[in-house]
Amino acid sequence: MSETSPRLFIVSPHFDDAVFSCGALLAAHPDASVCTVFAAPPEHEMHTEWDQKSGFANAYEAVHERTLEDNRALEVLDAIPLRMPFRDSQYADSPSISRMAAMLEEIIYRSTANTLLMPLGLYHDDHVRVFEACCEILPRLSHLVWFGYEEAIHRRTPGVVQARLADLAQRGIVATPALPSAAHTIDVQRRAQLKREAVNAYASQLRAFGAGNYDDVFATERYWQLSVGRRARK
């Protein structure tokens, strides 16, 4: 791979978000890093509605099995898993945005990535918190190429993408529709096939969403290139 080729680092709030939202892109970028922010089990045994819908007896089992699912999915896409020691909101122990930002910035700094992909933070509280952490980092790492990705399933909520684009403008972040260039030549059909195989590795989450409620993960992926501009006046 040449020095100018994109070396991807994708920030994923939960185990499945990067693959659900960027799986076809990952298929074209072997050795991309996928950093899952909320990858730790709760401190004490817990039972949540989502974990129960996913088929798990408790939170410890859920995090363990979801980690294995993630390993299998990322192996299909030749991606490198990175995990942060934070717990998602269903476990009632969310970290501060500044703490997430500091640790994430350190991980990015230690990587060889030159292209960063962050969630737009659509609808889900955990996604919004990760978005805020990334926005804190972006101006300090503006020498890297940044993209925001529309989170599959959540992007279907009417108006959320438009609201986020307006919010970015208020923050002085310019969002332009764009697609990171492919590092390797791989046809669209093969990318879709690999993504579908990777998505199917998350059997517990597909079970929780229910048949017919996750078709959006197979729709066209959408990205916005982000750059620091001038903050909009109110």
Rank of each mutant, 00 (worst) to 15 (best):
D78V: 05
D78Y: 06
A79V: 12
R83Q: 15
M84F: 04
S89D: 12
Y91E: 09
A92Q: 12
I97D: 03
S98F: 07
M100S: 03
A102T: 15
M103E: 07
L104R: 03
E106Y: 10
E106C: 07
I107A: 05
Y109V: 05
Y109S: 10
N114E: 05
G121C: 04
H124W: 13
H127I: 02
V128W: 04
R129T: 00
V130L: 13
F131Q: 11
F131N: 12
A133Q: 06
E136W: 01
S142K: 11
V145H: 07
W146P: 01
Y149R: 01
E150P: 00
H154C: 09
H154T: 07
R155Q: 05
R156G: 06
R156C: 10
G159S: 09
G159Q: 08
G159A: 09
V160H: 07
D167P: 00
Q170W: 11
G172I: 02
I173M: 12
I173F: 14
A175Q: 05
A183M: 04
A183Q: 05
T185G: 01
D187I: 04
V188M: 08
Q189K: 03
A192K: 03
L194A: 06
R196H: 09
A201P: 08
S204A: 14
S204M: 10
L206M: 15
R207P: 13
F209A: 10
A211C: 12
D216G: 09
V217G: 13
E221K: 11
R222L: 09
